[in-house]
Design a protein around this nucleic acid. Structure first.
Length: 280
DNA sequence: CATTACCTGCAA
DNA sequence: TTGCAGGTAATG
């Protein structure tokens, strides 16, 4: 997934749907619905209007209102999900993997495409949706977090730094590509134990996180496989990475060949020379 | 901690 | 045919 940048870009582009009124909700993947059944949503969601779009970590929250009632429709793209907006005069060639469709009264449609079917859709009152343990446990957003909170969150955890960066309960928003880029930028080996990091290193990781994530958003996110913006714009971050996907290419800092290992159960790219486990 | 499971497509 | 893929929860 779509990590934080891909959720942020999706959020921004979904703002084109503000004010639209929902006419119909369809899915063929009702097992991935949370909080409400397909039967209930289909009936309940009609005539709600899109009121506000937010992002929480990697999740996109669509706020709906009807009279004085407010509901949330939330999307987690997980690994292969993406949202697509089709305006009334467009007729996209749809893949075989559209699993959710929201049709608006002006015939605009919002599709959720997800070949691997890991994506999640929540529907319900705000307090009920946010009661889900995914939201309850979600750590502070990496784009908004202060250094002192970042430090506090990291130090609460023992173990390897990459594992902590990927853990949404500690900090929300970082995924596998960003984690590798952040650790390269900070010159830290992904398997470094958190308790051996000094304050300077933690600060570097905090700064690098903001820098790398903002860079990805600016470049339109990562379009490695099927992911595109809701309007089908292609992201370009995959062409501007320092280490991710660059096995056997030379490190742009020290010219050493980038290697790929397994860390925290994930494919992990790093420069074996400039990313060290020992103190600098 | 690491490994597995969820599911499908695609490259080696 | 195998192994791997942007995530996460469940299991040793």
């Amino acid at each position: 997934m779509p990590e934080l940048p891909e959720a942020e870009i999706t959020k921004r582009k979904l703002k084109n749907l503000l004010g639209k009124k929902i006419q119909k909700f369809w899915t063929n993947l009702s097992q991935n619905l949370k909080n409400s059944s397909y039967k209930f949503i289909k009936k309940d969601i009609v005539n709600y209007k899109i009121n506000k779009i937010k992002r929480l970590g990697k999740v996109i929250l669509v706020y709906l209102n009807k009279k004085n009632k407010i509901k949330i429709l939330a999307f987690h793209q997980r690994i292969s999900g993406r949202l697509i907006i089709q305006n009334k005069n467009q007729k996209f060639k749809l893949s075989n993997h559209i699993h959710f469709i929201i049709t608006f009264s002006d015939k605009t449609q919002l599709f959720f495409e997800d070949p691997r079917k890991f994506g999640i859709v929540w529907y319900g009152f705000e307090k009920d949706v946010l009661k889900d343990k995914y939201f309850k446990n979600l750590g502070p957003d990496i784009l908004k977090i202060s250094f002192s909170t970042f430090k506090k969150q990291l130090l609460k955890h023992s173990g390897q730094i990459k594992s902590a960066l990927l853990n949404q309960k500690i900090i929300a928003g970082i995924g596998n590509i960003l984690a590798d880029e952040i650790l390269w930028y900070s010159k830290i080996h992904p398997k470094t134990q958190i308790k051996t990091l000094n304050l300077i290193q933690i600060k570097k990781i905090w700064q690098a996180s903001k820098k790398i994530i903002n860079k990805s958003i600016k470049l339109g996110g990562t379009s490695m496989r099927n992911w595109l913006h809701p309007d089908n714009t292609i992201g370009n971050f995959q062409n501007k990475t320092f280490v991710y996907g660059k096995k056997n290419q030379n490190c742009s800092r020290c010219n050493t060949k980038i290697i790929k290992i397994k860390s925290s159960g994930r494919g992990t790219y790093l420069c074996p020379k400039c990313q060290t486990k020992s103190m600098p």
